[in-house]
């Protein structure tokens, strides 16, 4: 590829990057503006005065209360989902049994349920076992509803794992558990990181289940908290922008961390392989 080819390529890539990132920058800029600037000024302009008080106002509204709930609920659900999905995918793709196709089909059907038709049955089920207004109902719901998609993503990778590894392990007298936890899981680190990122985003932003199953303020998560704020500044768009930015920051940091893991994991497993 010639020099001109590279220039065109980078131009296109840059354009896409701009398209992906510009709205976020715009959101950030407008979180620092007041109404007049937002409505009459150019959307591209820097704010005349950086109004950090928009953030202070939002933070003092009590968002901090919901942070911890979001973090622990998201975290535990991710661990459960990725572990259970890896185990099930391993058995479905690598082991020999008659019902594996059928079971895989069941998980795929789980992908298809529209959540709004699930919430009313789920509510009455949780009510019967007294799990309403209990954060664990959220954790197990997140786990169950993210299992299918997590498995689908893992699936393609498990199919491509070389058979020889298992054979060698078994000839060496390695048990299946040891093989799974010591060899297979580390090998799938990149794709596990991918599913961790995806689960994290889903759980962090989930809204309908929390709103339906949780009634006490002390168990509510950030998204539900934010919903109350979007109404608050009905006419104060700067504060809305600040609220949205605040909700993104933690997940952005976690994302950058795991995103590097996707690459790191690969290089380390590549060395082993």
């Amino acid at each position: 590829m010639g020099r001109i080819g590279y220039i065109i390529l980078y131009f296109c890539l840059g354009l896409v990057a701009l398209f992906q990132i510009f709205p976020i920058i715009w959101l950030f800029l407008f979180s620092l503006k007041d109404n007049k600037e937002i409505f009459s000024g150019s959307p591209f302009a820097l704010p005349a005065e950086f109004r950090w008080e928009n953030y202070v106002k939002v933070w003092e509204g009590g968002i901090g209360l919901y942070f911890w709930n979001s973090i622990w609920i998201t975290g535990i659900a991710i661990i459960l989902t990725v572990l259970l999905a890896s185990m099930a995918t391993f058995v479905i793709t690598r082991m020999h049994w008659k019902l594996s196709k059928l079971v895989l089909g069941l998980f795929m059907i789980g992908l298809m349920i529209p959540i709004h038709s699930a919430i009313i049955p789920l509510f009455s089920m949780f009510l019967n076992v007294e799990l309403i207004d209990n954060p664990w109902s959220i954790v197990i719901t997140y786990t169950a509803y993210n299992l299918p998609i997590t498995m689908m993503i893992l699936l393609g990778f498990y199919y491509t794992l070389p058979r020889e590894i298992e054979e060698a392990a078994i000839i060496d007298g390695c048990s299946i558990h040891r093989m799974f936890f010591r060899i297979i899981l580390p090998m799938t680190m990149p794709v596990m990181s991918t599913t961790v990122i995806i689960n994290m985003i889903y759980n962090w932003n989930e809204f309908v289940f929390v709103n339906t199953f949780i009634s006490s303020d002390k168990y509510k998560t950030l998204t539900v908290g934010i919903q109350n704020f979007i109404g608050q500044y009905m006419t104060d768009w700067g504060a809305i922008g600040a609220t949205l930015i605040i909700s993104v920051v933690p997940i952005l940091l976690a994302f950058l961390f795991f995103s590097n893991k996707v690459v790191e994991g690969i290089s380390s497993s590549a060395i082993k392989g």
């Binding site: 259970l84 069941l106 699930a118 089920m125």
Partner: peptide, 10 residues
């Protein structure tokens, strides 16, 4: 998990 939380609602 999916039998109880997805298939029953379904």
């Amino acid at each position: 998990l999916i039998a109880v939380l997805i298939f029953i609602p379904l």
